[in-house]
Amino acid sequence: MNCRDVYQFLHPYADGELDLVRQLEVEGHLSECSECTDQVENLRALKTALALPSLYHRAPAGLREKLQLPIQPSTRSPRRTYARLAAVAASVLVLLGAVAMVASLASGTTADDRLAERVVAGHVRSLQVDHLTDVVSSDKHTVKPWFRGQLDFSPDVPDLASQGYPLTGGRLDYLDDRPVAALVYHRRQHAINLYTWPATDAPDRPVRGLSRNGFHVRQWQRAGMTYWAVSDLNDQELDEFVRLFRG
């Protein structure tokens, strides 16, 4: 591919909309063409600028009540309503979980798959009970020391705000039979839970992706730590988050 061929694919490339073959062709060209690489970098910078949370207009409080839906009058606050919606979603998840469990008994699901289910359930629970964060801070120098008093390990807390993934806090959670660190990042209105704890086995494992009940999950292991990232964010942006997190 030359610059002329690549040009039409640069936007779909930056958007993660190319098939694997095309993507590799574009990457091959980018590795030897600084001009096209600059263009992709400019595109990424623009995409980051457009991900500023302040550009997103969230529905004003009270709009939901104004909707003349065929819905019974409600005195619930929006937050409680969303909690109720989340509870409905969670009960669906529990049901799906039960179905999955039956399926796993039949097909012999691995321990990792079961852990993935728990990671997703933990993510949903954190949103549902409005308990996303124990320590609310966008400052890694606040979040990291907070964990030191709670856990027997100290997680890495990279600052990704300038790349469009601001840290919003941290939380203690319980997974894989042990307390773990949950770092909470945001992309627009989407929360990303990043769980991490010391690995039980040493070898590094590359990032692998899976989806559970509409949530996207990424898992990897590096330098003796296990990492799980989960969000309802689209695949492409979650991949970008993981790439940035891994540095």
Binding site: H57, A59, P60, L69, P70, L85, V88
Partner: peptide, 24 residues
Amino acid sequence: MHLDPDTRRQFEDLTLPHLDAAYN
């Protein structure tokens, strides 16, 4: 307009989570 309770619930579940997106 009238939706029966089940349909209403389905409609709420389908659309209310996207209220922010709709307004945006």
